[in-house]
Design a protein around this nucleic acid. Structure first.
Length: 718
DNA sequence: CAGCCTCACTTTTTT
DNA sequence: AGTGAGGCTG
């Protein structure tokens, strides 16, 4: 009910109570940015500076949007979360764009029941397009065409405006045009299109622009460092005459690989002549040593707006650092520590194992599984992305929009009903000739499929959503089909879960009243596309948390294991070739470190299985960038000779089978530690040739990976 | 038309 | 190592 302004620190309070002008809030990790954002909204409304309908708040994930909604609701009078903020627009960029396009679909040139393509759907649509146009998929891989199209859309560039520099780009622009035509014909819209379309709608339609410009007095943006150029332009348009309140942290920008533009923060300051820049630097999450480590690390980055976190909490423990002989060794150690923590009363759900890439989770999972420690792995396939769910949704879509060729192709012959490639090809030819959809030109064998869909539509006419989905799942033949599959039980369970999802969605929809009148089925399909489902198995259970560093952003844990701190892995080897790639990796490490509240473990392994091969890695440069005084090495630092691995392999009762036989090359061998007068210390990771011609490949960490001729280079065994 | 097998790929991810 | 997609054979 209350805002509790007295609990805010001076900077937070200043940010919350800024006058009605543009503001940029630089909010460090754990500095209470969500709190500032939500309190600001509530403060504006309570003070009568704005009505709920005048507020637009944008986030990146549905989860963040929900949290914001709940927290704002809790601070406002008469608030039960359901009867919430009448008319307030809180949501993701895509959610809000969708909302606008639904409301003005006619002006935007879209059918009322337009469908949304997720990335999978989009790729399928592009593959289909390329095939139809007879494009050589080796020269134009569908995935790259997709990246090109999305990249252009995210820069706000339409096909006719593409800067054509060469033949390749010219062709790509053509494909872009053809793709957009296909989408338009089929009444579907991809994620990037949602944004671009609503941007153009505002830009070209003066009435709407004025309407929304007048309406939204205050526009607030979360995670501003993650916005791309189009999103920034969208904000500029919709918030033309409003006060823009942007909250972000340039040090936590870890999504440039998907188009995020940190430069938006500087641009914003300049474009809007921002008078108020508030830095939130007091951290309420971590102990001092953890923060000091994070600060020291990120200080190595050049492109920063500048910020230093501090805490009133004590220094806490030193960071614990472990060197494993192998990835398995590292995993074993993690498991041991986790059990010790558990014995000391730490809740498993407060412990997280973080890693740079998903492939690393497997070894740890094995170790945890064999010790019977419950764990939960984040990421991977989400509910609405599962094949069986996509199949069911395809049936539903065909009921709503029969011309949806993507869906037609997905399920025309699934479960198998004798409509093979031949038949489909004929249909595609006919459709192309007549300029119609596949469903419209169905004949012969495929008539049975159209009849099935027509029957389903007739039968479900007027049924409530839940029953509708139930009937479709039952009569599509999917359940029957999965009964015959050996892995089918899980899939059937998921289909049943889909029916439940439909049931809950109906209730939610009634409560939150998304406003615009859309038929329930379309609303549900939109929900499925826009919210692939954070809803995952094992939620809320007491289990160890495992995830990539990326997915850990925004979360916090008492204890964090940051594993695989090795050159080539973290920083990832592909990052060194990208512009500013290393700085992004460092920000990633910064995000990882600042997830920990009380205890942080850092670990690396000397050898690691990757893609079926043993790799020899040296410790990450990031370990060297953390002051020695903050760390406590659980294993003697670098003292274990790499030879120890071979020694262990010889002595151990069961030798580690994955190790290659150490081959002598000019007195050196793979895995050996060496010192070079110029490049410093490194480890031999590959070798070729014999005697005088022998060459070895050495990983010198921050100095890079080099091939050296043994007879020339002054290499010494370390 | 359908199942099987080989081949190529492998950073990070939300919507 | 493990997976997914596409090609080939029955």
């Amino acid at each position: 009910m209350s805002l509790h302004l007295e609990h805010l620190n001076p900077e937070q309070l200043a940010a919350v109570t800024l006058p009605d002008e543009h503001a940029l809030i630089l909010a460090g990790a754990g500095s209470g940015k969500t709190r500032v954002l939500t309190t600001r909204i509530a403060w504006l409304i309570k003070g009568g500076r704005v009505t709920p309908a005048g507020v637009l708040a944008v986030t990146f994930t549905n989860k963040a949007a929900r949290e914001m909604l709940t927290r704002v609701g809790a601070m406002l009078p008469s608030a039960s979360p359901s009867s919430l903020p009448r008319g307030m627009w809180i949501g993701t960029f895509h959610g809000l764009a969708n909302r606008m396009l639904r409301a003005h679909h006619r002006e935007a040139g879209l059918p009322a029941a337009f469908q949304i393509l997720d990335s999978q759907d989009q790729l399928a649509a592009i593959k289909r397009l390329l095939k139809g146009m007879g494009v050589d998929e080796d020269r134009f891989p569908p995935r790259e065409v997709m990246y090109f199209i999305n990249g252009q859309k995210e820069e706000g560039v339409r096909s006719r405006d593409v800067t054509v520099t060469d033949e390749n780009t010219r062709r790509l622009a053509e494909l872009y045009a053809a793709y957009d035509e296909q989408c338009q014909r089929e009444g579907v819209v991809d994620f990037a299109e949602l944004l671009l379309r609503s941007y153009e709608l505002l830009k070209n339609n003066e009435i709407l622009r004025e309407h929304y410009g007048q309406r939204f007095r205050h526009v607030l943006v979360d995670e501003f460092q993650d916005t791309n150029r189009l999103q920034y332009r969208w904000l500029k348009l919709i918030g033309r005459s409003s006060c823009l309140f942007a909250v972000g942290d340039d040090d936590q920008s870890i999504y440039t690989f998907r188009g995020a533009n940190v430069g938006n923060m500087q641009d914003f300051e300049r474009d809007f002549r921002v008078k108020h820049v508030v830095r939130l630097e007091q951290n309420y999450r971590s102990h001092g040593n953890i923060l000091d480590a994070a600060n020291a690390l990120i200080a190595n980055n050049r492109n920063r707006l500048g910020k230093n976190l501090w805490t009133a909490a004590g220094q806490g423990e030193p960071l614990r650092v472990f060197e494993g002989e192998s990835d398995m060794d590292e995993a074993r150690w993690i498991v041991e520590e986790v059990r010790a923590l558990e014995r000391d009363g730490t809740r498993l759900s407060q412990v997280a194992v973080l890693y740079r890439s998903n492939a690393q989770s497997r070894v740890v999972e094995h170790a945890l599984f064999s010790q019977g420690i419950p764990y939960r792995v984040y990421g991977g396939l989400r509910f609405f992305e599962r094949a069986e769910i996509k199949h069911a949704l395809a049936y539903l879509r065909l009921i709503a929009t029969p011309d949806d060729d993507n869906s037609f192709l997905r399920v025309a012959n699934f479960p198998p009903r004798g409509i093979g490639a031949r038949t489909i090809e004929q249909l595609q030819d006919a459709a192309k000739q007549q300029g119609k959809s596949l469903m419209a030109v169905v004949d012969g064998k495929a008539l049975s499929f159209r009849k099935l869909i027509d029957d389903l539509r007739a039968e479900t006419q007027g049924l409530p959503l839940k029953e509708l989905v139930e009937v479709v799942v039952a009569k599509s033949g999917l359940i029957e089909h999965y009964k015959t599959e050996r892995e089918g039980a899980d899939r059937i369970e998921n289909l049943e879960e889909l029916v439940n999802a439909a049931a809950t969605f109906t209730e939610e929809a009634r409560e939150t009243e998304s406003g615009e009148a859309v038929d329930p089925l379309t609303a549900f399909l939109t929900h499925a596309a826009l919210e692939a489902g954070e809803h995952q198995a094992g939620e809320g259970q007491e289990a160890l948390q495992m995830m990539t560093v990326h997915s850990a952003k925004g979360l916090e844990f008492d204890v964090v294991f940051l594993s695989g701190l090795e050159e080539g892995l973290f920083p990832h080897e592909q990052s060194v070739t990208e512009r500013d790639g290393l700085e992004e990796e460092r920000r990633l490490a910064y995000v990882a470190i600042t997830r920990a509240r009380r205890r942080l473990y850092l670990s690396h392994a000397q050898t690691r299985m990757l893609h079926g091969q043993t790799r020899y890695n040296i410790p990450s440069r990031f370990l060297e960038e953390i002051p020695e005084g903050l760390m406590k090495w659980l294993t003697p630092r670098f003292s274990r000779q790499r030879e120890a691995v071979w020694g262990a392999a010889r002595r151990a009762p069961d030798p580690i089978p994955t190790l290659k036989t150490p081959r002598d090359v000019g007195g050196f061998r793979i895995g050996q530690n060496v010192v070079h007068p110029k490049f410093g210390s490194g480890v031999i990771i590959d070798a070729e040739g014999q005697g005088g011609d022998a060459r070895v490949q050495v990983n010198f960490g921050s100095q890079g990976v080099k091939w050296l001729a043994v007879s020339v280079a002054k290499l010494q065994a370390a």
